[in-house]
Simulated scan of single mutants.
Amino acid sequence: MRMRILHVITGLQSGGAEAMLYKLLSASHGNGFTHAVIALTSGGPYFEKIRDLGVDVQTLDLNMPLVGPGAVLRLRRKIADIAPDIVQGWMYHADLLTSLALMRFLPGKAGTCPPLVWNVRLSEIDPRFIGRSTRLVIRCLATLSHRVPAAIVINAEASRQTHIAAGYTAQKFQLIPNGFDLEKFKPDPAARAALRRELGIAPETRLVGMAARFDPQKDYPAFFAAAEKVIAACGDVAFIACGSGVEAENPAIAPSIARGDIARHVHLLGRRGDMERFYPALDIYVSTAIGEGFANVVGEAMCCAVPCIVTDVGDSRVIVGDSGVVVPPADPAAMARAVIALLDGPAHNRQAMGARARTRMGDFSIAAVARRFEAMWQTILSDKKARRDRKKAEGTDR
């Protein structure tokens, strides 16, 4: 009999949690597990992608963060109708709403309240980047963490320490890193040549890139400031960046690319759906993030054998190991020096570093990561059954 897992996620827009959920479903759905998804908000590119996997996807169409008791009741009824064996939450608001829904659960077909697992993605709780309502949700979850979830999944060790400091119980964390499709993301000379032709970048031009939505935590000003320094020092180099809002028409970006000679060397691509073509075109991948847990984009670049220069945030240092370079966050001069050092060195050094990066990502295959999720869910259900059997034996089963 297949185990039925219900995933409740805040939304299905473009983001790390959404991408990881999609990859997990791709690797697990139908392999002894049946999955369903409820998104609190409507729309998003991952709605169709997940539905195309044959997974049941529903939405509550909520206007976050303004939700009331009616939203809790609607979610509770949907959970009862789906009758999952396990409910897997994704991100703070979904974790809280699902916790409230299950605290006064209306038994459905299964006749029993399913265990709930939370999923925490942030490695830092920084008021500069997290709104007041989300900080309030985090405080509520810290209180509930001691008695509601069966487990709390984190994808970075830094998340554990941050959330323990915020009041979460230390006893329930389970570290399961992001997983990657090494067949999809791999070195691809044809893709490298094709993207360069598309952008008018010569085969011999050194190319540095970053993929991230335009968001304060990604620190695009540092990316552009570092690019300006590298362009001045290295000459034949180009920079590309992609992600939601990463376009020349963005008024917040325009001043950064208007300085000096930077506009001729920087290509802003907006959101792209062909990241498996993006990474192989690069000679160096950079991440200027000032807040990160386990960045999917860094892992994908490493799968494509691209050496990475990352900021020392979250678990980035652990992820790249000896296959990349780590610099302080919010320090474009340090980022520029690291890029220049790699570009000025022999090409075979970059290639060797990239090869180590891909080898390193073998430990993070999505198949292996999916098995870790599945083993956790099976253990939780086994523990639940053992407790129920123990109560029956003691004559206290209700």
Rank of each mutant, 00 (worst) to 15 (best):
A225R: 07
F223K: 03
D219R: 04
D261E: 13
E198Q: 11
E247K: 13
D236F: 09
A258C: 01
D236V: 10
R197A: 13
A194I: 01
K218P: 10
L207C: 06
E249L: 08
A226Y: 12
G260V: 11
L269R: 03
G235I: 07
A211V: 15
A202W: 06
H265S: 14
E204P: 00
L195K: 02
Q217N: 11
C242V: 00
C242Q: 00
P221N: 03
V208L: 04
P221D: 01
P216R: 09
R271S: 09
V237K: 08
H267V: 02
R196I: 06
A212N: 08
R259G: 11
A263G: 06
A193L: 13
A202N: 11
P216G: 12
I253E: 07
P216Q: 12
G270V: 08
A225D: 05
I253M: 06
A193M: 11
I201N: 13
A233N: 08
G270S: 10
H267T: 00
I257V: 15
K229Q: 15
P203Y: 02
A194P: 00
G243S: 04
S244E: 15
Q217T: 14
E198G: 00
E247S: 07
A202T: 12
I253H: 07
I231L: 12
R196Y: 03
A232R: 15
A194S: 05
V237F: 13
I231C: 13
D219L: 04
R197I: 03
A248I: 14
G235D: 02
P189K: 11
E198L: 07
F224C: 06
K229G: 01
R272Y: 12
F223P: 08
C242N: 02
R197S: 11
P216V: 07
A225K: 06
V237R: 14
L269G: 01
G243M: 05
Y220E: 06
E247P: 00
C242A: 14
I240D: 11
V230N: 08
E198S: 07
P251F: 06
A211M: 13
G270P: 12
S256Y: 14
P255A: 02
P203V: 02
V266K: 01
A190V: 14
D261W: 00
I262P: 06
A238V: 02
R271G: 00
V246F: 10
S244R: 15
G200K: 05
F239R: 03
F239G: 09
A254M: 05
A212W: 08
L268S: 08
G245H: 08
I231K: 10
G260E: 14
L199M: 11
I240V: 15
N250T: 13
R206Q: 13
L195D: 04
D219V: 00
R264E: 13
A241K: 09
D261L: 06
G245N: 11
I240S: 14
A248G: 11
